[in-house]
Amino acid sequence: MQRRRQLLRHLRRHPLDSALSLAIVLLLAWALWATGQWVVEVADWRVVSANLPLYVSGAYPADQRWRPLVWLGLILTLTLVTLLWPRPRSGQRPGPMRVALPWLWLLMLPLGLAVLAGGAGTGLTAVSSRAWGGLVLTLLLTGASGLLALPLGVILALGRTSDLPVLRHGSRLYIDLMRAVPLIAVLFFGQLLVPLFLPVELEINRVVRAVVAFALFASAYVAEDVRGGLQSIPPTQREAAAALGLNAWQSLQLVVLPQALQIAIPALTNQAIGLLQNTSLMALLGLVELLGISRSLLANPAFIGRHLEVYVWLAALYWLLCTAMALLARRLERSVQPIPRAPGR
């Protein structure tokens, strides 16, 4: 009753605000109705439902499709475990499962590469990376280039903040140049130029070239985020480390970097999400990751004109992946916390 009276008074006092609210409500109602009607009545979802295997793993041989599925299943399980496993209470050290989780996540990448490639040592039939595609390729591109970009970026950030002029200016030149060019150009020239700069005999495939180009590009952005973390460590920390008798390397490794990286984690998460979204650019360069496979499906006469269905489906998928990544990063952040916070802080 009280609330209702308050609402009425608010409406009387601010007619403009009320008109705005009404307009928004009407707009939302109309948008919901139109979307609902389209999803149920107009849209023809066969372009999605008939091609689910392609969205999952691209042109991966049909009799081997269980391999990417097993890998995706493992990732899904790990995601659920990470999200649902009880969190340590503040002030307590995380349990063994929490400590193991980041390592399990790290393990997923080599495992995925091994399961998908197969061949010698795994007892599985070898499948060329040319046949990889869909969601699996998107995830592998993101994971591999992210893992490569992180150490590169940390090294660049250390160089950028070093007091040795050669290191500082060299890193700065690289970071500034990389941040000045658009990603699509880096990727395009990665495909085109990397072979030019390598010995004639050495031929590397398109997926590897893409990963290298992504990593080189992302490392410049990672470097800036890590530099932000490094700069926020007060000089007293280094001084304290020096006073304890740690040398420069130990102080960096044990005191400065862990804290700097922890501060940089939210920014790095954003970079990782950006990386996942940017893997879609490889569709323009002929890889059949999620967007690439959709483009080739839309070129199929059977599904002509079904753009909206495909784009809505892809948007939902990317939205889900990005949101899951943000959630996971927030959860994992707690497990990798180098310095457990004191209770009450």
């Binding site: 705005l20 879609s280 784009y311």
Partner: peptide, 30 residues
């Protein structure tokens, strides 16, 4: 206005989680 706040948050949250390339294709083809 809470509705306006919510609408803006929806716009930002939706757009930032979808690749730009996909959005451009949507605007052009659809």
């Amino acid at each position: 206005n809470p509705l306006l706040r919510w609408l803006a948050a929806f716009y930002v949250g939706l757009i930032r989680q979808i690749p730009l390339l996909l959005q451009l294709l949507f605007w052009y083809f659809v």
